[in-house]
Design a binder for these strands. Structure first.
Lengths: 195, 195
DNA sequence: CCCGCTATGTATAATAT
DNA sequence: TATATTATACATAGCGG
């Protein structure tokens, strides 16, 4: 046996790499679990691998998404500052990633902003929701739109409210990725209620 | 010394808990780093703790957000199914979290959908962006709105397009959380261009 | 390929400074 | 309270079935 001291580098042997991955992922998840239990903190872990078509998460989808939502609230700058106060191996990565980060930030700025605009002005955000979500969302939207219509009717006589919104949305949403049929269903439900 | 076997439960002693947290977080990050290096996989870790006002991430903000973006693309059902195929300690947690999940899902469904609707119909999504983001976004939005206006003008004679959108947004966005001033700035910039 | 084994490297609980 | 030390529990590389 006489185990080697593990050279910290990419394992070229495919089967050995997969074996190591499985073992270490297991250990890591256990560690995360223990840390969360022992210290009562919010934590999540996400792994992507060629061995699973879906990323593997800890503790579960709900928990991870909750942490993710919190994480996304942080202003970008604050996050970067925080990063610098980590352990040495983190610092090393930061140094390397820093220039890459700066360059990529600049390059991606416009695309990112365009994407954000599309996601929020158009209906692209619906692609993250499944059919059940869309049904429930439709119900909520219906109810709220009715309420909204009441308020609007009390203010003005015009009827072009939602149709112009739809016009803007469609104009702002050029052929992005393939749009799921359900998305259109959901959107149409909204418009029907409004019209 | 004669170290105990570590009872896997919340550490009530404050200082001991903090000490354990720091040690284990450090170890965990190292493990994640090694796993990523050795197996060349995409991974990220996020920790929330009462000891830092910002969550701590691995490997960095960019990397984490990239993994997060991928993660959010997964349909909810697929994620849950995947979860069941984990190690035994994961199964145990799933069993416990499962009923909690079901109940919470049901309870949160309407709130969640309402929130999604607000985020997408209203301008709440802007709170995730810092001032620099808002400036750049404003530039992109300005340019696109001009393009959109051109298209709309080619179709119709009405001028109520964006103003009705604004009406819907404001009607759909009751007093949520405190709205940052910059949000209004950004929105007004959009409307100014449109009007 | 997947699992189990076991020697050995690594993480860390307890303690001291 | 933070950091350093050390003995021990734990993780896992390499190998065999």
């Amino acid at each position: 046996m006489t185990r080697k001291k593990v050279k910290l580098a990419f394992i070229t042997n495919d089967s050995a790499r997969k074996a190591t991955f499985k073992k270490r992922k297991k250990g890591l998840m256990k560690k995360v679990s223990e840390l969360s239990t022992l210290c009562g903190i919010d934590a999540c872990a996400i792994f992507y691998s060629p061995y699973e078509n879906q990323p593997e998460v800890w503790p579960n989808t709900m928990g991870a998404q909750r942490v993710l939502a919190e994480f996304k609230r942080m202003p970008e700058m604050e996050q970067s500052k925080k990063m610098v106060n980590q352990e040495s191996f983190i610092r090393q990565r930061i140094a390397k990633a820093s220039e890459q980060l700066k360059k990529q930030s600049k390059e991606n700025r416009e695309k990112e902003m365009t994407e954000v605009m599309y996601q929020c002005l158009a209906e692209k955000w619906l692609q993250n929701l499944n059919l059940g979500d869309l049904n429930d969302l439709g119900w909520v939207v219906d109810r709220n739109l009715k309420e909204i219509n009441k308020r609007i009717e009390a203010f003005r006589k015009g009827t072009s409210t939602s149709s112009s919104f739809a016009a803007v949305s469609q104009a702002a949403a050029p052929p992005l990725v393939e749009q799921k049929p359900v998305v259109e269903l959901g959107l149409e439900g909204m418009q029907r209620t409004q019209t």
